[in-house]
Design a protein around this nucleic acid. Structure first.
Length: 701
RNA sequence: GGCGAGGUAGCUCAGUUGGUUAGAGCAUCGGAUUCAUAACCCGAAGGUCGGCAGUUCAAAUCUGCUCCUCGCUACCA
């Protein structure tokens, strides 16, 4: 795949504006994308890098409910927060847009209409929950009920926050509307579907055949899995009042599915970039390249010409949308190109556990920036050396400290400092003359010349961790050179030779300032100032005579500072405190279910029973088959508790059972009753037992 | 249960057209050095490449089975 591309269109996943984003998101998409793009710019390539806030979908109004405010307030708040954090961390978008902007609504509707007019969307009427009192279809989030997976009584229709399962409203037990509190009714509603299965042959050809070798195994594997499983028509519209209106008549209360419009946000952002450039505005745009005489329609080549290389940087949770659904949309429209690659990363864990904003186990970007406002590169470096490129990786604060102290300070910073201090001491802070090169110098120069290509190869192959390691290796080369030539000793006897050595050491430093730019842009800039050398052109890298003799150097300063144990201990403490805080905050009792009468309650016959036998159920992860003595009889109950209890520990236990629940066949076995369990906030189940043993069949009332 | 991705040195991770003593960084130990933020530089030690079987002259790498982790998905609570 060495096609000569005329331009590059690089996207980083649109962060969902329902909350702050953590460093796992950075490691997943934004940092690798930024390194890639910065490198391309240094190569003088024509490249545009876009992202923006994803502001539609059910979770936004959901979050608004939680924060007791409006969806608009939510997106305004998090759009600004995320945008500013990414900027402070050096992520160099040409534009950071947002999907609530009119131009995005327009673009999304255009693409929807293109598909519609080509007859590529199918109309289907299905049964959706409707609140008769509020006279509205209920979005998934407006339906609450008992989670079928963990028994949580206030699960949302799209997701159970207790166990994290993705749900559909119809799966909920005892659904009720959050608008009226009443049970909703099923009512037919019309939606437009994209028949994904029709594109299977194309997907097989495009991904399974032509990208077998150049896409990452994790990405390719997941695509194959989905394709092999058989694709289904997917609804492109929803009954919802928050989002982009469906551009067809008689569709009040219907919007485009958030996953339809979100990736289109990349296109809208590119459009917005050229619109602003052509009008001389910079509302969202922060162009990093000079665009000569930009026109409104200049976005088109980036999305429509086959000599453009389109690359999506995302986390693994987005693979199906970026590799299958969005490409199908683009392909089906007949007007757009599809991505050349989607180098999705896996997830980054934190201190041995999964990162999660809601559980408080995370390092949010804004939190890091508050505590380390002058250290964006230190975070970039730690993340880059440990990106989850092939499998989930792990961030620890101790590792952060070690990488900072042992690599950035001791190798990179120290090398530059050594060269500068010696130059100040012996040559009045000017680049000394290098008369002749000796054997040792020539060897170092030969090695130096290899670095830019080596680093570039890794970047081009999306191996950013490896590329970052090569960067440090260049500083290592410098340290080794100084140690071998020992200029501080020669200073007493052979000053011209010292000059030659320091000249070359400074040339290495200048090279570092160029090749470090994609990875450590702030350090690169600082180093440039110290050296009074500004070129960032990649083509200059590898050159051993970037700095002319007698060139005046700038004021020396340390590039990095050591991090003490205390700083790290504070962060660990902070992390644990935050987690505890979140657990407490999550504890408040959930709102009660709708009132029931005594008669309704007394219909339920709840008893204490003893478990006589318990066994696992073949082919089921969650079910135990129990024989229980109810005092009246011995019966079989299927219970979904296998993930929390072993059969052995259940035997002989007294539990609470609903005995007059209608029997139901589960996995081919008739279940006569239901074991009642207390589900903890993390979804864990606990038996409900009498405080002292009672007779089997004792009534609970 | 199905599918996908992983399981390689104390830690974090590389390593597939199968081929000589399996690599890097950090940590550890030893040496050398003092220009430098006690940093750098050199060297050593450290691995049944999850397990079992098979194909092969040769397996971390291919095949089958198996165990463990993660993700999606299914039965179900």
């Amino acid at each position: 795949m060495t096609t000569d591309y005329k331009r590059y269109m690089v996207t980083a996943a649109l962060p969902y504006a329902n909350g702050p984003k953590h460093v796992g998101h950075l490691a997943g998409a934004y940092l690798p994308a930024d390194v890639y793009v910065r490198y391309l710019r240094q190569q003088g390539k024509n490249v545009i890098f876009v992202s923006g806030s994803d502001e539609h979908g059910t979770a936004i109004p959901n979050q608004a409910l939680k924060e007791n405010t409006t969806p608009q307030t939510i997106i305004d708040k998090y759009h600004v927060l995320i945008r500013d954090c990414l900027a402070k961390l050096g992520v160099s978008f040409d534009i950071y847009h947002r999907t609530s902007e009119p131009i995005h609504h327009q673009t999304s509707q255009e693409i929807f209409l293109t598909l519609y007019k080509k007859g590529l969307l199918t109309e289907e009427t299905s049964e959706q929950y409707f609140d008769e009192e509020a006279n509205a279809f209920l979005a998934d989030r407006y339906i609450i009920g008992t989670c079928p997976k963990c028994g949580h009584t206030n699960a949302y229709g799209d997701q159970c926050e207790k166990c994290g399962s993705t749900l559909s409203p119809k799966e909920l037990i005892n659904p009720r509307s959050t608008l009226s509190g009443k049970p909703p009714v099923l009512k037919p509603t019309k939606h437009w579907y994209l028949p994904l299965q029709q594109y299977e042959p194309w997907l097989k050809e495009w991904i399974l055949e032509s990208h077998k070798n150049d896409w990452k195994p994790n990405v390719y594997g997941q695509c194959k899995s989905w394709i092999d499983a058989g694709l289904q028509p997917r609804a492109m519209t929803r009954d919802l009042d928050w989002g982009i209106k469906v551009p067809l008549p008689h569709t009040e209360g219907k919007v485009l599915y958030v996953w339809f419009d979100a990736p289109i946000g990349y296109i809208s952002a590119t459009r917005a970039l050229f619109k602003e450039l052509s009008e001389g505005k910079k509302e969202f745009a922060t162009p990093r390249s000079a665009f000569s005489n930009p026109q409104v329609d200049d976005w088109k080549p980036y999305w429509q010409h086959t000599d453009t290389k389109l690359v999506h940087f995302i986390g693994k949770d987005n693979i199906v949308f970026h590799c299958l659904i969005f490409p199908i949309m683009l392909h089906a429209s007949g007007e757009y190109i599809v991505p050349a690659n989607v180098p999705a990363n896996e997830f980054m864990n934190l201190e041995g556990d999964k990162m999660s904003t809601s559980r408080g186990w995370s390092i949010e970007m804004h939190e890091y920036l508050e505590d380390f406002p002058t250290k964006p590169d230190e975070l970039r470096y730690t993340l880059l050396t440990n990106l989850p490129e092939t499998k989930d990786s792990e961030f620890t604060w101790k590792d952060f400290q070690a990488k900072n102290n042992n690599e950035l300070v001791a190798i990179f910073g120290n090398f530059v400092n050594r060269a500068l201090v010696l130059t100040q001491k012996h040559f009045e802070n000017r680049v000394p003359v290098a008369d002749t090169w000796q054997e040792v110098d020539r060897k170092v120069i030969d090695e130096l010349k290899l670095f830019p290509e080596r680093i570039a190869e890794s970047i081009k192959a999306y191996r950013f961790r490896e590329a970052t390691a090569y960067l440090i290796d260049l500083a290592r080369l410098g340290n080794k050179y100084l140690t071998e030539t020992e200029p501080w000793k020669l200073a007493k006897t052979d000053l011209p030779r010292v000059g030659a050595v320091l000249n070359l050491a400074l040339q290495i430093a200048a090279n570092l300032s160029i090749v470090a730019e994609p990875f450590l842009p702030f350090t690169s800039k600082k180093l440039s100032e110290v050296l009074n050398f500004s070129s960032k052109n990649w083509s200059d890298a590898g050159n051993p005579s970037l700095l002319k003799a007698n060139h005046q150097l700038g004021e020396a300063k340390l590039l990095f500072e050591k991090m003490e144990d205390e700083v790290i201990e504070n962060q660990l403490k902070k992390l644990n405190d935050k987690k505890k805080g979140m657990e407490l905050a999550a504890t408040p009792a959930e709102p009660a279910k709708p009132e029931v009468s005594f008669d309704e309650f007394s219909k339920m016959d709840i008893r204490i029973a003893k478990i006589l036998k318990a066994e696992r159920v073949e082919k089921s992860k969650k079910l135990l088959k129990l024989q229980v003595d109810t005092g009246m009889d011995v019966r079989t109950v299927m219970s979904g508790i296998a993930e929390y209890f072993t059969p052995e520990e259940m035997i002989g236990k007294q539990v609470t059972i609903l005995v007059n629940l209608a029997p139901r066949k589960i996995m081919g076995v008739e279940s006569q009753g239901m074991i009642l369990m207390a589900s903890d906030k993390d979804g864990k189940l606990r038996m409900l037992q009498p405080s002292e043993a009672v007779a089997q069949g004792s009534k609970v009332s």
